[in-house]
Design a protein around this nucleic acid. Structure first.
Lengths: 224, 224
DNA sequence: GATATAATCTGTACACTGTACAGAAAAAAA
DNA sequence: TTTTTTTCTGTACAGTGTACAGATTATATC
């Protein structure tokens, strides 16, 4: 798959692989946040000169694109491709899988939603969704619309969730993040925001799995 | 409102205002994309040394934060605060208003969804949503959940829409963007993606106002 | 095998980025 | 008038992406 296409031509053997570069990039993102995956940082991590990276990718954008593809591909499609399970269940599995995959790399999330989702893995994901929605009884065009809506919901949720924490590094446990939000929201004055001020506890927990599933079900209810 | 708080103290008069800086930043974003709003660019645009900006904002993040607040605040709340209209209508007005406001500045969108939406204007928006959903008959906690869901939908949609074009500058007209997508999607092979390949025309138009409204209605249907 | 060819990787360099620090000019307070 | 405080500038530093020119290395050709 990731075989070097340049064997049988002159020149020294490649010392690196694309995957090594992506590994390094992801690792930097994981403990440095979205801006930590610099070309120089990547190169340093694998012990090579900065511009050696450009042998494997034309520019940084290509690295990011490949990394996004890889992250999307790492979601296990097998689980929700199982047509024996009820479709809502499969949808839930898919949504949770994607969320788990992406929130495990919060620094990468801005990169995922920062570019067009038109790579092979995004298309594959879309295809699984279309199958699933067909099984749910939707006509192709409605299924396509619904698939896009679900994309919006899933990636929108994840984006808002990771945007909520500013410190780089792995996402703290849900409970801790909720506690932080609660603290922040407790400062909301009742004067201009009476309704928000009265709902701070609820609002604090909107980054939770529970709310994520609740929202998913509302969307699915709307699609029917 | 934005009065200089430092009058009645020694020192030369300020040559700039925060708004001038935000104007410059927005203008740079508008015709250079999300990375174009550099401190140096802003300073050059208003004819001042780069570090003069730091008199008005502690760092670049603060500039971005203020700019986001301003963009959110520029949505006209009056239209959908009118309780005489049916609530679905008001919701539609709100959603369209926000989309228009943000897609008018595509370069700013990554900045909007890149940080926590907890500023005064985000809270004000949330408050309007809560009022609206209360008028729709929802109980406070359900209204709060639904409000967050709508945030996710609106900003998620806008983010995906803006991420779809890579060239900086103003968003091309919808028809042109759809045509571009159509062209790109026409290359989708039927082999691994039969369903997607059969729906390219539909998929191309998912960045449209029509799809946006359709999705909104599905979400509202789900909320009831 | 010797030679030509083409692909790696490195060193250096350039134009950018955010921002820290030191100083000069300016205006109000004393 | 002198002191004090603020604003803005100049300079500087570490960091960014990446272009360019070699040196090195392996293959293909003669």
């Amino acid at each position: 798959m990731t075989a070097p296409a340049t064997r049988g031509r002159p020149g020294p053997r490649r010392a690196l692989t694309q995957d090594q570069i992506l590994d390094a990039a992801l690792s930097l993102l994981d403990d440095g946040g979205a801006n930590a995956a610099s070309v120089r940082g990547i190169a340093a991590k694998i012990g090579v000169a900065p511009n050696a990276v450009y042998t494997y990718f034309p520019d940084k954008a290509a690295v990011v694109k490949a990394l996004v593809e890889r992250l999307l591909g790492e979601a296990d499609h097998a689980a929700f491709a199982d047509r024996n399970q009820p479709w809502r269940q499969r949808m839930e599995t898919l949504a949770l899988e994607l969320r788990a995959q992406l929130t495990a790399h919060p620094g990468a999330v801005p990169l995922v939603i920062g570019g067009p989702m038109d790579g092979p893995q995004a298309l594959a994901l879309n295809e699984r969704l279309l199958e699933l929605l067909a099984d749910a009884g939707l006509k192709p065009t409605t299924a396509a619309r619904a698939s896009y809506l679900l994309f919006v919901y899933v990636f929108g949720s994840i984006a808002l969730e990771v945007a909520d924490v500013q410190r780089p590094g792995p996402l703290p446990p849900e409970s801790e993040r909720i506690a932080t939000r609660h603290l922040a929201f407790s400062a909301i004055p009742a004067d201009p925001y009476p309704r928000a001020a009265a709902a701070t506890t609820a609002m604090a927990s909107f980054i939770s799995t529970k709310q994520y599933i609740w929202g998913l079900h509302r969307v699915l209810d709307g699609i029917i």
